[in-house]
């Protein structure tokens, strides 16, 4: 199970037949395992890793530190849910330390992101404060280096 996940996490386009060969399992075993992982919510989806900086698309990303007042019985969950349900929010984590939620927001301009924070995030009941940090450059994300990948410069034959 773990090995199939590791393989798919590295390359989701491998077929069940290929994974079967790589792991020494039968194709059916792999197919069933993957189906099980999908239905139990371990595998949530398959997607391309896109470096949008290499495209024409104009966008900005911000990391927002949000401080909250926890609510009776619900802790931080219900406020977090009100935040992460916005499609502009690309990631949301509950953190230890000096703030509570780390929220990644994407928008087409600085202004759009700033407006989203002031008009949508900051006004939610229970939100004490926000601090917005704009991302200048993405070096690595999802285990993939966006910059400075290493080329294979080995000699063509080595005995």
């Amino acid at each position: 199970m773990k090995e199939i996940l590791e393989i798919l996490e590295g390359n989701a386009r491998l077929t069940a037949a290929e994974i079967a060969v790589m792991t020494g399992k039968t194709e059916k075993e792999v197919r069933d395992a993957i189906a099980g992982l999908e239905s139990s919510g371990v595998i949530l989806g398959y997607r391309a890793m896109v470096n949008w900086d290499r495209t024409e698309r104009e966008f900005v990303t911000a990391l927002i530190e949000v401080r909250l007042t926890p609510q009776r019985d619900k802790g931080f969950d219900s406020i977090a849910e009100r935040i992460y349900k916005y499609p502009q929010v690309k990631a949301c984590h509950l953190m230890s330390g000096s703030y509570d939620l780390s929220v990644v927001v994407e928008g087409s301009s600085l202004k759009e992101v700033a407006m989203f924070v002031s008009e949508k995030l900051a006004v939610i009941d229970g939100v004490l404060s926000t601090a917005t940090h704009f991302v200048l450059k993405k070096y690595k994300d999802g285990d993939i280096m966006f910059e400075g990948t290493e080329k294979d410069d080995r000699e063509a034959i080595v005995l």
Partner: peptide, 25 residues
């Protein structure tokens, strides 16, 4: 070395996929 000629051949070629390397990738 018996593989000298392969070095000479690949020097003239582009797009070779090498499975001839005895070291980790």
């Amino acid at each position: 070395s018996g593989i000298r000629k392969y070095f000479d051949l690949i020097n003239e070629m582009e797009g070779v996929v090498s499975l001839g390397i005895g070291e980790p990738d």
